[in-house]
Amino acid sequence: MIQVFAFYLFATIVVASAAMVIFARNPVHSVLWLILAFFNAAGLMVLLSAEFVAMLLVIVYVGAVAVLFLFVVMMLDIDFAQLRAGFVSYFPLGGAIAMVLLVELILGIGAWQAGSLNLAQRTAPLPEATPNIEAIGQLLYTRYIFLFEAAGLILLVAMIGAIVLTHRARGGTRPQNIDKQNRRRPEEAVRNVNQPVGQGVDLGGVEL
């Protein structure tokens, strides 16, 4: 009973908040609705007893990617009127994509009703008691190790590429040498003076 209740709760919120992503007038609100959709999708994953994927969804998408989205959207000065101006010209393209998605959904459901493809039996199914972190690990580090490492390499190349493309060495900056700052001791910076009355302070050659 509680599973059914939880499923409909999460599913309703996912669909509703996904709709609100499009309909919200304020882009910051859109991102926040998107985050709510991610979070509830994680809830659905838990119901499928894919708790590892659920936690990763929250950690990676909600905790990191969406924060960056939010940053960018908050920083941008978006002109809403200008954004809405393109609605009519983009409508045919958007409609076409929506149609493709709809046809795919119908095809998918039709194929599912016709009987399953039995893909799952190609790899040795894991025993029920194995936690799905271990199950994923056993597949990822044995059968799919080359794909996994290739994915890691691609991400590394993408990261280095992004840095190379956007990094520019600016001249005329005065970077701080933290080691030098940390090495500095009070004896080098502080001078105790017994100041005589009626005389100016000798700053020891310091220019003000």
Partner: peptide, 25 residues
């Protein structure tokens, strides 16, 4: 007593950012 306890804590603590970011905005 879930088997992804530590990941749950990481996930929840990564949500803590939103209270701060939303209040600031």
């Amino acid at each position: 007593d879930i088997n992804v306890g530590l990941l749950y804590i990481l996930a929840i603590s990564s949500l803590g950012v939103y209270g701060v970011i939303i209040s600031g905005w």
